[in-house]
Each structure stands twice: as C-alpha cells, then as structure tokens.
C-alpha cells in the first residue's frame, strides 16, 4: 500500500536525524525530571499537571519535524519525483501523518515511564491519555505540514520554534492562565494549546469535569480548519513548486 510505504520512509527519515530524538524525547524528559527536583509552589508543576504539559510540549517538536521533513523533500526535489509517480494527495498527507504516530507513542510511553518513576500513580487513564494524544497530535502535524509546504528548510525550523514558544506561553503548562492577566488569558483560551492541555489533563487525572465545551469546540475547530488548510496548501505547493 502506497500510504504505508511512504509512511515507513518518512519514519526512517525522522528517526535517523539525531536532533529529532534530542528535541522530541530527551529535552522533554529532562524538563520533566528537572522540574520535579525543585519544590516549586505552583500546581502547574505537580506531576499530574506537568506530565500532560510535557506531552503537549513534545508535540510542538512534532510540528518541527513534520515541517522540516516536508521542506527538505521539496528542496531535494523528491516531491517532483513523487509528483510524477501514481501517488495521490491522500497518500502524501496520510503518509506524513502515519509516520508520526510511532514517534508519538515512543514519546508518550517514555514520558509516562519517567513520570511513574517520579511518583505518578499508574492507572488505565494513562492508556486513554496516550490514545487521545494521537488525535491531539493531528493538530500539530497539520501545522507542520503548513509550515513545511510554505517555508524553506532553514525557515521551517525558525517558524516551528514559534509554535514551541506559543505552546510554552499559551498552553498553561508552566503557569496557570490566571497568572497571565485577563486579556492575555482570554487570548490563550481561544488558541488551541490550552484546550489540548486541559483535555489531556482531564483524561489523565480522570477529572473530565475540567474539560469544558469551549475546550472541545476550540480544539475541534482548530484541528479541522488547520487540517483542511494544510491539505489545500500542500496540494497547491505540489503544483506551484513545479512551475
């Protein structure tokens, strides 16, 4: 099947880049470990809150890898070769997405192993969190597809780092929304990252009541809209790059 064949190639391309492992796995693991070594008087740094934060933070690097892989494929003209082949648009998009799923699973399993070693209690909710995080990752992959389709290889990493920063500052992983002031806090509520984090927190801690309708609506609208835009832009760039 062409989708799986393309996904297999994409997976190999990503994991063979040592920087991918450092940023997607080692850095979040380090942050999870180091912040538990201090007695920080904030709810955000408690394991049950900070572990989902680290998952969302790790996803921001998924955006980076997806963007870099696509921009590199454009630069090396691999997409020209594939554009001439019988592959269809759906093969590309799903091929890029499927390649990321094993990386998400590796990330999450390692994050939870460390969190459990640091004192998080194991429960079935952790499995549910991992499964839901795959859906949440679609948003981050789609953002990566957009960046990789429009930016050069060098610019992709720069633009993606904005997403990393946005996740840090607007998700609430490092400090509660209330601490950001009313204006900025409201902006954060209508950006997708705080909703991503709240959904994961609610599922992981079995406190579904903290997930509001707004969280679900914001996440679903952003994911569908960004995914649709990413498909459109990718298809368009497949043609315009070849002019």
């Amino acid at each position: 099947m062409r989708i799986l064949n393309f996904a297999k190639r994409n997976f190999k391309e990503i994991i063979r880049d040592p920087l991918s492992l450092i940023f997607a796995v080692i850095l979040p693991l380090f942050l999870l470990f180091i912040f538990q070594q201090f007695d920080i008087p904030s709810e955000s740094y408690k394991l049950e809150n900070f572990t989902p934060g680290i998952i969302v933070f790790g996803f921001s690097f998924i955006t980076l890898f997806t963007a870099m892989l696509i921009s590199k494929d454009r630069t090396t003209s691999l997409l020209i070769r594939l554009g001439i082949s019988p592959m269809k648009s759906v093969d590309y998009i799903l091929g890029y997405m499927l390649a990321i799923i094993p990386i998400i699973l590796i990330q999450n399993i390692l994050f939870f192993i460390l969190a459990i070693m640091l004192g998080l209690s194991f429960s079935i909710s952790i499995i549910y969190t991992i499964l839901i995080s795959i859906i949440i990752a679609v948003l981050f992959i789609a953002i990566g597809i957009i960046i990789g389709s429009i930016a050069s290889e060098k610019a992709s990493s720069g633009i993606s780092s904005i997403i990393v920063q946005l996740v840090c500052f607007t998700s609430g992983m490092y400090f509660p929304m209330e601490a950001l002031g009313k204006g900025f806090g409201t902006v954060c509520k209508y950006l997708p990252f705080e909703s991503c984090l709240t959904i994961l927190k609610g599922i992981m801690n079995n406190t579904l009541e903290i997930i509001s309708t707004r969280n679900i609506i914001v996440f679903v609208i952003y994911t569908i809209a960004i995914l649709a835009v990413s498909v459109k832009i990718f298809n368009r760039k497949m043609v315009t790059d070849n002019k």
Binding site: R9, D17, T76, S77, I80, R81, I84, S85, P86
Partner: peptide, 28 residues
C-alpha cells in the same frame, strides 16, 4: 513514465537499497 529530475531527488537518510525499495513500493 519516470523521471530523473535536475536536482538529485532521493531520500537523503535512506540507504541506496532503501531508496530502491521505497520507490518500488511507490510503483507497487
């Protein structure tokens, strides 16, 4: 049909054999 584009269009992190296998998969 097939093409060898102006720029070397090969997957950089794959070995030569893996590149051949990958494209064999693309053309089934």
């Amino acid at each position: 049909i097939n093409v060898s584009p102006q720029e070397t269009a090969i997957a950089p992190n794959l070995s030569v054999k893996e590149n051949l296998e990958f494209m064999a998969g693309v053309y089934q």
